[in-house]
Write a protein that binds this DNA or RNA. Structure first.
Lengths: 343, 343
DNA sequence: GAACTCGGCTGAACCGGTTCACCGCCGCCG
DNA sequence: CGGCGGCGGTGAACCGGTTCAGCCGAGTTC
């Protein structure tokens, strides 16, 4: 285990000062082309890698961003969404040689505390916040802290920080239009957490569109995104009088669970029940019948979030942080789980 | 955005030297109880949080561990395994106030490079290595580097680093014994990557047990863990003459895909086909019929891996790093997807 | 030829902790 | 009363980078 190579070693080997080495390695003016080339060559030869802590201490930046996820291990594990998002984020970050620090928390208080600590320690240069809620304490908290942050979701009214989002209303209209065209008039929806921003946006969009189309019924049931709750709600829905002919799920996991319940009750899909899933993970193509679902490129979404965060981090501290990035809306991918409503 | 509080500020406020503050905050001898209490009170009042970079620079430790995952975004997203593992790791790490740095890579070369860089930069104090292979270059690489590491999987012969693992052979025997008791004689298995260590261990265990039980056939097909391949292999299996009466899958995703194919082909489960999944995620309970699967506490497994790594990090550099931790083997959870073989 | 500019480089301060050598003081012992 | 040991604390060096004031010498200007 040989000692690490430092810029002092390089300086000694090249016969110059530490300062010159620093300028050369960082591509700044202050050294001639010849000296720069010599220093770079020596550095490469000695296998120099700068010490992150030393650099951070000087420039007061961590070259890392953080994500605190407030979801149970079970939800996290089974929802493909987060891993895909993270992998997109990661791709952009590592291209900019930023690291990703991950923490899983239980409560909002804990999450706020993590942000506070990360920022005070300068462990991260910024954070991405998922699961934006309608009344989200975190938004003001990080803004007050001065911690660069980007909200993964939106749009957020009166936001003091950037949001990266896609229009959730448009896909709602697309789904209902599609189901309506197939003759469905009694539609139910198994939604996610009621307090999440995008859930509210979808709630409204469905309600308005349903009214416009003159649907017989369009009820929404909020859940926690788990398969268990998805199954329970579906079971209740399908056992009721005047049961819906189509059910829309706010994530893929619940849709799969719903399909399982339909099988269990001997209800043919799509013969007597159509199923639509929001968020098209590979999971939706594994079932039989394959699930009609809303496709969006979550990984690309993650990349855009990371890009937005990097731009905030790179910007002046007092720069405008209220911009928002709108991504492409999700697109309907019709598959075998939807069909005409039985007369 | 007020300036950060440093120990110099505290020292000034308390009328002592920086050194005294450091001793007081770190609970070391060198200051009297009274002074210590005063310093701690002032630190708390001023909201002091130590700068991570400065501490790292001094003590030459990052207070963070890294994981580089070499799986495609799609596999990562859909396999609950990794997120559960990570959440277990996280729980132990944050209890020890260590951070977790995550990176997703494409190739082994890239992964090795990440380890090299992380260690050279002192960005992490150690790493966890998943997906241990039979011939794994990474093991020697990190050992040569001197980078503290723990292999998530094993046992590894002639290992130069600790491994945390569970016996994969025992569950194999349990599954085959169970299926055999149900009358199954033609069993197939859809396995994971052939180059992974645990795949090989299972391969052998199945082969030996099958021979012992005198099964008619026990074929293994290797795959990449994705639902697509699981489905494709299952389709081929079920269309063949002398098709198996039971199929064992090496992960839950492929098992779900296999169940979908059975539905598609109109083959009743468990009437004409029994299905067993390795790794019991909530996914296995969402399908209909629910999948018989091998349950293990992946989150707890992650915790044990993290603990092992922390102990290696805390140990002397020349301490013995070849210990291995054996966890509880997975347990069979029979559900509705398995039943007696049709005569 | 004196004054002035400017590129190239040096030396030292600095970031915010940790650590170590050392010092003053008090009590105790012979 | 002199010497000794140990407690409580100080001051400075140190970790490995970045950055800035300033210096030197060559070229330009008048």
């Amino acid at each position: 285990m040989t000692r690490r190579v430092t810029i002092a070693d390089i300086a000694a080997a090249a016969g110059v000062s530490k300062g010159a080495v620093s300028y050369a390695l960082n591509g700044r003016p202050g050294v001639s082309a010849a000296t720069r080339a010599k220093i770079l060559a020596i550095a490469a030869e000695m296998g120099f890698v700068p010490n992150r802590a030393a650099r951070s201490l000087s420039v007061s930046s961590a070259q890392a961003v953080g994500i605190a996820l407030r979801r149970s291990a079970r939800t996290l594990g089974i929802e493909p969404y987060f891993m895909e998002l993270i992998s997109g984020i990661e791709a952009t970050l590592s291209a900019g040689s930023f690291g990703l620090t991950l923490q899983i928390v239980d409560t909002v208080e804990e999450e706020l505390e993590v942000y506070r600590r990360w920022w005070a320690e300068r462990r991260v240069d910024g954070v991405l916040m998922c699961d934006v809620g309608t009344e989200d304490r975190r938004l003001d908290f990080v803004a007050d802290l001065g911690l660069p942050a980007v909200a993964v979701g939106g749009p957020i009214e009166g936001a003091r920080l950037p949001a990266v989002w896609h229009d959730d209303a448009e896909p709602c209209r697309e789904i209902l239009g599609y189901l309506h065209a197939l003759g469905h008039r009694r539609i139910a929806r198994v939604a996610g957490f009621a307090h999440l921003l995008h859930t509210g946006i979808r709630d409204n969009a469905y309600a308005e569109t349903a009214a416009g189309l003159g649907l017989e019924s369009m009820e929404t049931f909020h859940s926690d995104y788990t398969g268990e709750q998805g199954a329970r709600i579906t079971r209740r829905l399908l056992s009721s009088a005047g049961r819906p002919t189509a059910v829309i799920y706010d994530n893929d996991v619940m849709a799969v669970a719903g399909l399982g319940v339909a099988h269990e009750l001997g209800i043919d899909v799509p013969g007597r029940l159509s199923i639509v899933a929001w968020d098209d993970s590979p999971l939706c193509r594994l079932t039989h019948p394959a699930l009609t679902s809303l496709t969006r490129d979550i990984s690309a979404y993650g990349s855009q979030c990371a890009e937005a965060l990097l731009s905030v981090i790179g910007a002046e501290p007092d720069a405008d942080r209220t911009f928002s990035v709108q991504c492409l809306p999700a697109q309907l991918s019709p598959r075998a789980s939807t069909g005409p409503a039985r007369a």
